[in-house]
Write a protein that binds this DNA or RNA. Structure first.
Length: 234
DNA sequence: AAATACGACAACCGCGATGCG
DNA sequence: CCGCATCGCGGTTGTCGTATT
């Protein structure tokens, strides 16, 4: 059942998210091409995977990085270089994309700050953007952002989630800093270690949540999901 | 109040790795 | 072993909200 229509690109709609999550629940988060076809989303498997991994995965933490996470990113980046997916495995709930974005933004800022503060111009600082970024790494980049709120307008149905995140980030502080060791492979839905599934994460069993999760960490649409009957045909 | 700059993040692209027939 | 399809990763770009002038 191949869609002959042209492939959709750009931002995902809430409905698409909904569909994708449900089909991932049904078929798992592996066969992306298959899911893309069978779901009727006019998206590539690649696009579906990206959306799932970076945005819809139930284990994702949202909101700003904790100081501990920041430090960890910096440490691991200096150790491993730009192996973002590897670094991400050490930070449960964070995606490689998120870490990569964080690194770029914050290191650039650091570099700029340093450039401004140092009266003696250093050649290294003028070579290239990349050179700047890799020339500095330290902590302290915990610039508080209100950016999370921007999503509240885009993802209306997720309002509560984002608000929750904001609040819990403020309140919980360091309690999120206990990380499990390596084996937390994001590709295996393996989010069960010490990732604090507080209100800052998806609450599978919440009566307000869109999806439910069974023992095998598979997501299923709730029975009152408007799409449910549609999915049931598969 | 309007314009501009900046920051944060989502999403796409290209390429290499891997699996399978 | 080879070729194809798919997946995963890292780099890059686009968009939007916020801060600053």
């Amino acid at each position: 059942m191949v869609q002959s229509e042209e492939v959709r690109k750009g931002p995902w709609t809430e409905q698409e998210d909904f569909k994708l999550v449900s089909f991932v629940g049904l078929f798992g988060d592996r066969r992306w091409d298959f899911i893309a076809k069978v779901s009727g989303l006019n998206r590539t498997g690649k696009s579906c995977r990206l959306r799932w991994v970076n945005y819809l995965h139930p284990g994702l933490k949202r909101g700003k990085m904790t100081p501990h996470e920041e430090r960890l990113v910096l440490e691991l980046q200096s150790k491993w270089g730009n192996r973002w997916s590897r670094i991400a495995r050490k930070l449960p709930g964070r995606t490689d994309n998120e870490i990569k974005n964080y690194w770029r933004t914050h290191m650039r800022k650091k570099a700029q700050d340093k450039k401004r503060n140092s009266s003696a111009p250093c050649i290294e600082h003028h070579v290239s953007k990349d050179a700047e970024e890799t020339s500095f790494y330290d902590t302290g980049g915990s610039r508080v952002s209100t950016q999370v709120k921007q999503h509240e307008q885009e993802e209306i149905s997720m309002d509560d989630i984002w608000k929750d995140i904001d609040i819990s980030e403020e309140n919980s502080g360091l309690e999120n800093e206990e990380f499990c060791n390596d084996n937390n492979n994001k590709n295996n839905n393996n989010i069960s270690c010490s990732l604090p599934m507080s209100s800052s994460s998806w609450e599978y069993n919440s009566s307000n949540s869109l999806w439910v999760m069974d023992e095998e960490s598979m997501l299923f649409p709730k029975s009152d999901d408007p799409y449910f009957s549609y999915y049931a045909n598969y």
